[in-house]
Design a protein around this nucleic acid. Structure first.
Lengths: 117, 117
DNA sequence: TTCGATGTTCTACGAACGTCGAACAATGAT
DNA sequence: ATCATTGTTCGACGTTCGTAGAACATCGAA
């Protein structure tokens, strides 16, 4: 596992963000992260294979929506809310509100276990 | 050419809108329509084949973003701004602002000719 | 009626996507 | 050193997408 690359704020593209958020599962992941808390990989409860989850997290990271931090063999992910807000003001808020309204990505939850970093 | 189907306001989905707006050309079309004026098919200047343009307009229509009206052999398209706003408040505004910022979809323009309905 | 103009639909094709299982790499634990 | 845990990467598979050309349908004009 080599260091993951994160795009700079000004490298974030609109179509990249839109494409990343056109999948219900990825929207669900973003919703779970919307409270600002950092979540552990294993804390995420997503009804897909782990390779698929890895793929989705990569898409979100490449789009500039999330940041992944590694600590030993585990990794933790956070939402880049301020960065996205700085790049595209109001966009993420609107998407989150819309997703909440329709419960998009409800398949994604977090394990309420004591998994603090 | 049979009557095109338009989704009701509550049939518009978030992922559908996001997917529709993840293509630069479609974003460009939406930007061109953002002034609220109805535009004729032939008025749109898009650097793709007409079958491709037809496809893009269909995607936008199916997503509930635009409305197509037929008049004889010609058709006219408008942005369903209020409908989208009612369904997902602030979303379209944020996308349009973001698109303006980056000039996404700049390939799409309108023929400034006298083509009034 | 015969043309021409206007869009849609069909078919095709390469690229990208979502998904999975298996193999792999990196780290921590024993 | 050996093993288990954690997550990434690598094919593979079927689906969807963006694109174009050709054929078609519809309507207005000559």
């Amino acid at each position: 596992m080599r260091e993951a690359r994160h795009p700079e704020v000004d490298e974030i593209t609109l179509t990249g963000v839109m494409a990343a958020l056109s999948d219900p599962i990825r929207v669900g992941i973003v919703r779970v992260l919307a409270d600002g808390r950092e979540r552990g990989w294993g804390e995420l409860r997503v009804p897909v294979a782990k390779s698929t989850l890895s793929h989705h997290l990569r898409v979100l990271r490449d789009a500039g929506l999330t940041r992944t931090r590694q600590e030993g063999t585990r990794c933790y992910v956070t939402l880049r809310r301020e960065d996205v807000q700085a790049r595209f003001p109001g966009l993420l808020e609107a998407v989150l509100a819309a997703a909440e309204e329709d419960d998009v990505g409800h398949q994604v939850t977090v394990q309420p276990g004591p998994q603090r970093a």
